[in-house]
Write a protein that binds this DNA or RNA. Structure first.
Lengths: 213, 213, 213, 213
DNA sequence: CGCTAATCGAGACGGTACGTCGGGTCTTAGG
DNA sequence: CCTAAGACCCGACGTACCGTCTCGATTAGCG
């Protein structure tokens, strides 16, 4: 995660404390749990981390950037279970994702930084680089496994294959987020099963042909 | 929209200005366009509306409530095109929804109030009542039409039918929002077609059987 | 003392609290006693006065202006004793002035605001209006009495008379301040007597005789 | 000027740069001219002098000490003109002193450090040693010359003579400072003449005649 | 028609957080 | 031991909004 701002010159001077980084990110997550996005203040985070406010501002441009980095670490915990079938893989990752969204620090922070990013292009890039794109690996890995198992056809057109992957990702991530945060209904095994059924039924229809439908 | 707070007594006295309401909501939307959610301040909205801050606080409890009301009006513009086929209906509503999300006032406000609602239950209810549930009608109407046309089977189990409707709603709304605001890729005809293909392929699979898969 | 900044418009709105003014000025003097000029902070004054920082900034432009107003009130306590002779009048006012300069709030504040005023013309004007010019009355009254008693000739030229009054004022105020704050030696009856001797009779009058006058 | 802090041990190691001292004091004076006492910062002085902040703090305890040393050098320029009469000597030194107080670096710094010294005894001592006492020589020399010329009687009592010298010093320095910095009126030949008249002959000498002496 | 009572605008109020700045210290690497 | 560079902790700065309050001045509808 190269996401912190780097000091302008690389010359002499006291080096930045690595422990401070760790402490700040951990304090940020804890503050999110305790206070939520809106009431989280950088001064409070600094206090929790046992660090001066200036130290915090030296490394992050603002609240949004800090929180993105803090929650990005949580998303890296997601991993694709190798459960032997595409359906089980999808259900597994959906439930994992839902569990992550159930954690208070993620719940309150994720939508807030995305909202922030709608009027802040650099922030959107940071979110994409630190969170979104990193999780697309789950879709790619899952599809590769399914193809190896013969559950999905191999799309010959690379561009079409990429578009499909993006589509799948938007559908899965979007649906789970919407269910969990907007509808605020539980993402349980039952829902995951029905959702997977929907995805799988359509998946073959999409991957089976070219982009011209 | 009964959502404003009502004066305690109904007795005599100067009645509230109706023009103020209109001016405030319009000023709120304009401020959202100009400033985005975060930089929008109630003082600024009051100034734009040519109204005292007091007047504003007498009617709304805070920023979130005001903004929810201001954007809710926009969502009522959505309507299901009667295009003769389920696929065309879905594509149409997806593109309409995407167009709505493309407007700056909606874009910045929607995610923000949802984020806010994760730690504010009354706000979540307000959002659900004013925005979310009102749009579920699109799904229900669409399904009814498709069933009338014979494109979809009639689910005999009412509970299962409701669950399916919720699922569809989360998938459509979630996917479009994710594509538009998180991935920040265009929701164009091409994407709508591929997405519809995916949904339709899976839809029959889901609605064809009971919840136990 | 019209010295506070006046609200731009004179129209409606909640009027400024008069008690706040009193509390702030008193708190300022107390803070000067406790902390001295350098360590006095406006935030601390606000807290002591039981007032918000914004209230303070709404009325005074900064620390210097506030302190000038706070100490100006003390200078108004000075009064010319009517002791029957010019010498006794001078000695009396010198000792009064010295007592005022001995108070910690005056001691630490006076030189500081004057220093500040060397690079701040409006502040200098405020000091002159609130403090310096108001005390020139002592010189004018004293001279008038002395002239009435026949101790001093009446200067016919008005311009010259004014210049003399200014000179006397600079000499008395300057000498006492220098003795008290720069040399930091006591301004006691003995010193006041010698000083008065010098003023009244000049150098030879002082050097010509012993300390017992 | 032994006033800088001395390194604890005198043992080997890189010796302190002498050029740094010169550069720092000169930078300090220039910063006083550009910014005034309040806005002068040690970090800025260090930058101007092309020196690290550490180097500065190794030599001076703080802003006040540094500035005292920087302006003390300027006061050494004062010298008593040997003009043949006591009156001319006084006028000459008054005008020299006024010229010194007219320089921006002196003007802003002198009062500020004196103000600071009212709550900082060591600083007061440093000011007395570096600035004040060094100028008392002017009074002593002037009196000695006047006595040699027969213009002033010789005071036999040593204690009384010292008290008189102190008094003269406070009156001259105080009056000039007050005229220049508090009243902010010009200390020109005209004023110097009237002031000298007062010092030499007392109040009646001044008020008894017109401004042309 | 005059009361009565809630409204309106304006703007001051006590708070909280902001992001920046300067103070003085400490930690590097290098002379 | 000194130096330049720059990060560190700390505390204050002056500003911006928050949501509340106190004004005097409008408006209705009820009596």
């Amino acid at each position: 995660m190269q996401s912190r701002s780097t000091p302008p010159t690389r010359a002499g001077g006291r080096p930045r404390s690595a422990e401070a980084d760790t402490a700040i990110l951990e304090a940020t997550r804890q503050a999110l749990v305790d206070l939520g996005w809106t009431k989280l203040t950088l001064g409070d985070v600094a206090t929790r981390a046992g660090v001066a406010k200036t130290t915090l501002y030296r490394r992050w441009a603002g609240k949004s950037e800090l929180v993105v980095d803090a929650v990005a670490e949580l998303f890296d915990e997601l991993e694709l279970p190798d459960s032997g079938s595409l359906a089980a893989d999808i259900e597994g990752v959906v439930l994992q994702f839902a569990a992550l969204l159930g954690r208070p620090e993620t719940k309150t922070a994720l939508m807030a930084v995305v909202a922030e990013s709608t009027t802040d292009e650099p922030l959107r890039e940071r979110i994409r680089a630190s969170i979104v794109d990193r999780q697309k690996r789950l879709v790619l890995t899952g599809r590769a496994r399914a193809q190896a198992r013969g559950e999905l056809p191999v799309e010959p057109d690379a561009a079409s294959a990429a578009a499909t992957a993006d589509l799948i990702f938007d559908v899965i991530a979007g649906a789970v987020v919407h269910r969990a945060l907007v509808s605020a209904e539980p993402v349980d095994g039952e829902w995951a099963r029905r959702f997977t059924l929907l995805i799988l039924g359509g998946l073959s229809a999409v991957s089976g042909r070219g982009p011209d439908g």
